[in-house]
Amino acid sequence: MILKAICKSFTELIFLIAQSAGISPGIVEKMRYGKGHIDTRTIQNVCEYLDCQPGDIIGDIKEKP
Rank of each mutant, 00 (worst) to 15 (best):
H37F: 14
M1V: 07
K35V: 13
I14P: 06
L50F: 07
L50V: 11
A5R: 03
I57C: 07
S9Q: 11
I2N: 03
R32H: 14
T42R: 04
C47V: 01
G26C: 08
I43T: 02
F15G: 01
E12L: 09
H37C: 12
R32K: 13
G34Q: 05
A5V: 02
L13H: 06
F15N: 08
S20A: 15
I38W: 02
K35T: 11
T42V: 14
Q19M: 14
P54D: 06
R41D: 14
K62I: 12
I27V: 15
Q19L: 14
S24Q: 14
K35A: 08
N45F: 07
E29P: 06
D51K: 05
K35L: 13
I58D: 00
I2Y: 04
P54T: 10
G36V: 05
C52I: 04
H37K: 13
I43H: 05
F15V: 03
P25K: 01
E29V: 11
E29F: 12
G36N: 09
Q53G: 04
D56C: 14
C47L: 09
N45I: 05
A21K: 04
I17W: 04
E12R: 05
K30C: 14
I58S: 06
G59K: 06
F10N: 04
T40W: 08
I43C: 10
D60E: 15
V28T: 07
L50C: 03
E48F: 13
L50Q: 04
S24K: 08
C7A: 15
A18R: 08
S20E: 15
D51T: 02
I61K: 06
I43Q: 02
M1C: 09
K8R: 15
L13I: 03
M1W: 08
K4R: 02
I6Y: 06
I27Q: 08
N45L: 14
I23Y: 10
P25N: 09
M1F: 04
A21L: 01
P65R: 01
I61W: 06
C52L: 01
L13E: 11
P54Q: 02
I23W: 02
I61Q: 00
A21W: 01
K62L: 12
E12N: 08
I6S: 03
K35N: 09
S9E: 03
S24R: 00
I58A: 09
G59W: 01
E29A: 14
F15A: 06
C52M: 04
C47Y: 08
I17H: 08
I27S: 00
Q53L: 12
E48L: 12
P54V: 00
L50H: 03
C7R: 11
E48D: 13
S9F: 00
Y33E: 07
L3Q: 00
